[in-house]
Design a binder for these strands. Structure first.
Lengths: 65, 65
DNA sequence: CTGTAGACTGAGGTCGACG
DNA sequence: CCGTCGACCTCAGTCTACA
């Protein structure tokens, strides 16, 4: 669906030297779920997107651009 | 959770003279579900938010601002 | 026209393990 | 460190109906 979002999350995570486990923990979601999101296999809910954007220190609208 | 989004959707819908049924149909979702979203009783998925933003002729990031 | 309710299905999401 | 798999459970989202 939205493959760009997946790539952006992965890119931002790596730029901040975070592992999937660290980011997942920071965002309060499961690592396996984060992996699925980064590979565009699952479409997260608004709630979880907000958590992820906060964990990446970026606003939700910006994350979706 | 995000009450502002709910209000914004309702506002934009009315500005475009759409009923819940019309907008729901245009977005491909159920009217009862749209009602719940507009009253902040349910948190939609990314997928459905995209559908709604398109039906309202607004970009998803802008809808979330 | 809208809010709400009940009953239902499928997707979102967890946890743990492993190559 | 990451991708994936299976078992599991919650909730998003459906439809129909009604005040």
């Amino acid at each position: 669906m939205s493959a760009k979002l997946a790539q952006k999350i992965k890119r931002l995570r790596k730029e901040q030297n975070l592992t999937q486990i660290k980011l997942a923990k920071k965002a309060g979601i499961a690592q396996s779920f984060l992996s699925n999101i980064e590979n565009d296999l699952q479409s997260p809910s608004l709630k979880n997107l907000e958590k992820i954007s906060k964990a990446l220190d970026i606003s939700l609208p910006d994350l979706l651009k």
